[in-house]
C-alpha cells in the first residue's frame, strides 16, 4: 500500500483546481477512502474489509443506485502474453466497481487491493443485485472468491475449465503456436524516413 499512498498524494496535489475534486472528496469522506481523479474518472480507494459497507453507503446514503460494472486488474511483474509493465509494481489484484446515480449522471469507481495468491473478497450481491454476473465473471477470469455470493459458478467458461484466462500468467495458446501476423503494422514502411520509432522485435509477442 505504501507505493499507492505516494501516488495518491501526487494526484491530489496536482488536482486541487479540478472541478471534480469537491465531489471526489465528498464521496471519499463518506466511505472513508482516498480519492483520486484519473482523466475525469473519480476513483476512491478503500480497504478490502470495507468493501461491502462502502457500497451500502454509496447506494443508501449517497444515492448511487445504478450499478455499472465490477471487475479486476491484475498487477503482475511477469506476463505470459501482452505488454509487460515498464517498472516493477507491488503484485496484487485490484478489484474495481463503478456505480452511478440517476439524477445527475455522476459516477464513481471504487477500488480495493487484495492478495494475489489467495484472492478473496466479500460479495456485494446483497447491495447491488446486478453484481451477481459480474462477480461470477471475475471469479472465473481471475480466480477471485466472492464470499457470500449465492451461486459462484462459471459464467462463460465450461464447468471444469482449468485456469483463469485474464490472469497475466495465462498464455494465449494461439500466439504460442503461430506468430501474430499483425506485427507488421508496427514496422516502418520501406523507404519511409519517419518510420516506427521502435522495431517490431521489441514487441513481446513477436
Amino acid at each position: 500500500m505504501t507505493s499507492n499512498q505516494s501516488d495518491v498524494t501526487e494526484q491530489t496535489g496536482t488536482a486541487t483546481v479540478h472541478p471534480l475534486q469537491e465531489f471526489a472528496d465528498g464521496v471519499a469522506a463518506a466511505v472513508g477512502g482516498v480519492a483520486e481523479i484519473h482523466f475525469g474518472t473519480v476513483k476512491v480507494r478503500v480497504p478490502a474489509e470495507w468493501w461491502v459497507e462502502t457500497h451500502r453507503i454509496a447506494k443508501e446514503e449517497l444515492g448511487f443506485v445504478f450499478f455499472s460494472f465490477l471487475s479486476a486488474i491484475e498487477w503482475a511483474n511477469d506476463v505470459a502474453v501482452g505488454f509487460p509493465l515498464s517498472e516493477p509494481v507491488e503484485e496484487r489484484i485490484e478489484v474495481i466497481s463503478t456505480v452511478g446515480d440517476l439524477a445527475e449522471g455522476r459516477r464513481v469507481t471504487f477500488s480495493t487491493d487484495i492478495d494475489r495468491e489467495n484472492p478473496t473478497i466479500a460479495s456485494i450481491v446483497g447491495v447491488y443485485a446486478g453484481a451477481n454476473w459480474h462477480e461470477r465473471e471475475a471469479h472465473e477470469m481471475f480466480g477471485i472468491t466472492f464470499e457470500g455470493h449465492p451461486n459462484l459458478i462459471n459464467l462463460y467458461l465450461p464447468t471444469g475449465f482449468v485456469g483463469h484466462p485474464l490472469r497475466k500468467s495465462f498464455p494465449l495458446l494461439s500466439r504460442e503456436v503461430k506468430p501474430w501476423p499483425g506485427d507488421v503494422d508496427v514496422e516502418g514502411m520501406p523507404g519511409d524516413s519517419g518510420a516506427a520509432d521502435e522495431p517490431s522485435t521489441e514487441n513481446p509477442e513477436a
Binding site: F39, G40, G82, F83, R107, T109, V186, N203
Partner: peptide, 30 residues
C-alpha cells in the same frame, strides 16, 4: 494512466475501463 469512458450506445451504457502503461497496447481493458 487509467480512465473509464462510457457512452450512450443504442443498447445502453457501453464503456471501457482502460489501463495503460505507456506501451503500444493497453495493459488491461475492461
Amino acid at each position: 494512466g487509467e480512465t473509464y469512458v462510457r457512452a450512450e450506445n443504442p443498447k445502453g451504457e457501453m464503456g471501457y475501463y482502460l489501463v495503460s502503461d505507456g506501451n503500444n497496447g493497453p495493459y488491461r481493458v475492461k
